[in-house]
Each structure stands twice: as structure tokens, then as C-alpha cells.
Write a protein that binds this DNA or RNA. Sequence first.
DNA 1: GTGATTTGACCATT
DNA 2: AATGGTCAAATCAC
Length: 321
Amino acid sequence: MGVPNRPENLSTTRTKVIKELVEGQDYATQLKSLLHRPTEDLESLSAEELVSKILRSFSETLSVLSACEPGELSQSQAVSHADSHCDVRRSEDSGESRKRSEDSGESRKRLAAKDRRGCYKRRKTSYTWAIVSHTTDDGHAWRKYGQKEILNAKYPRSYFRCTRKYDQGCRATKQIQRMEDDPQMFQTTYIGHHTCRDILKAPQIITDSDPWGTFLVNSDTMMMNIPAGKQDRALNSSTTTIKQESLESPSDLTDSISSLGTNLWSELKTFELLEPAILSPKMGSDNGDAVATMYSCTDTCSLNLDLDFEGDFDFDGGEFL
DNA sequence: GTGATTTGACCATT
DNA sequence: AATGGTCAAATCAC
């Protein structure tokens, strides 16, 4: 990613974001009508397909936005400097194929391995956001690379990276932790966005999961809230309840979907006005744990650029993590 | 045999 | 020093 703060890049970014959101809005609209008339329009896309497309649209939008976010930029710069020797070495022995080659009996001990270790940079400034869901399946192919007991947490945290990390350089990772107060639910924290090309390749993304039964609980630069009442229901209800709810009250769901789309859209228009603030170097800098921007999709849809939840917003402080 | 997962060690951050 | 994120050898599953 070059110099995203330049005007021409801003323009490109805006165009891409608008395109993706328009697309997503269109699919959401189709989904809405589909839910109202589930038996009609047999030739149109299925609800599952539409949901997949909507999610893809969001994913792409987030990718574009993260690409122009200063924090992401500094991360890229870090890669080209401090990380470079590591990445070169990694790409030289290229991904998964490197795996067992060095093993073969000897040189398995620490000294050899030690040369490799410490050769990574912990990412701090990527886009992160979290969802709580009854499922951990999000349609992407992930590979587990670690698990850790977390202090004061009942359940361990599992670490996943995109399976395309090495063949496509996709930097997306996620962490999954079972929620203490509701072991049926998982909190999934995504770090970075997929840059690989097989986004949502698997249609099963919504087969046994209900994407609307999940909700975003935080982001360090972006936070989306499903309307508060729905959050409560999502928190307090099981999967089946959510699904039943959707079936019994489609308008409830579709209202949510459409408000999500329209609010995003109206906010996008504001985006243009607030662009200097959004792209200000302050946001998403190393202080990335602070929520610099909040996209709220509540009924009173607001865009607050100067909110700083550091300290106040104790999302990480034990409630979920 | 190949790819995925487990698990203890290493390392960055605070 | 404590904690959490990542690595990579060992192990598992197919």
C-alpha cells in the first residue's frame, strides 16, 4: 500500500468503499424482499447467497479502509524494515513447505530454532474487531497456530491464521475464546483483514451459523452495534432462539438489515465530510487500542470521531476477554 | 505422505 | 517480571 493519505488515494478509497457499500446495500435490499416473500423470486439469489455477498461486501470495505488507515500503514512500514529479514527468510523457505525440511532428526534443538524465533513482530496496529457468536465458523479457512491459557479466564484462547498466509500473504488472524458467562458462545477477535482471494469461498458460512445472531462488540478503530435490544437478545438467547426469532419476526430482522445498510450509507455520506478527521494521523496510530471512531448503527445512528474509550470502555477488561 | 493440531518454548510488550 | 502472541517440533488425522 503506497501513500494512502494522498488525495488521489483518498478518492480511490472512497470510490471503492462506496462501490462496496452500494453493492452490499443492494444485496441487503434483495435479502429484505426475499425474507418478506420467501417463496417468490425463485430465480433470484438465495438468502444464503445474499448474506454471503453482503458479508463479502463488508469484508472488502473493511479491507479498503484498513488499507488506508495510518496504523496499518505504519505496520506495513514495519514490515519493510524491521520485519524484512524475517519475511524474506519466511518467503524463501516459503510457507508450509518449509515445515519439516529442517527437522529430519538433528538440529531440532533450541539453537537452530532460536535463530528463527524472535523473528516476528507482534502486530499492534491492525484493525481488530470482535464478534460474539455461537459458532466459530465464518466461512474462511483458518489454521490454528496456538492456544494459550489466559489469566483470570476460565477458557483458553485459541489463535488462528488464514491458511493463505504463505501462498497469498494474507495477514488475517483471529482469536477465539469461549465466553465465561455463556460457554455456548464464542468471542472471536479478528485482527487484520483478508487479502487473499478466496474470501467467502465456502457457502457454508451461514449454513449452520446465523450471521445475524452474531454481533460486533468492539473494534479498535471501528465499532458497530446491532440495535441494543437485539444485542440483549443475542446475548441472552441461544442460537435456536435467535433463529426462531428471525423466522417468527422477519420484519424485525429485515429492519435491522436495512437499517444497517441505510445507516452505513448515510454515514458514508458523512464520511466524505469528515474525511480529514477519519484519516488524521492520530487515529489508529500506535494508540490503536483506543476506539477512535465508532460507527453506530443504533436507531440514532451517529458517527463519533473523537470518542476515546481508552480506560472507560473496558471491553478488554475482563467482561469478554 | 501430507496437512492440521497440540503444546512447550521463545519473545515483545507493558 | 508477568502476560499474551507466535513459533515450530511433535503428534494426530485422513
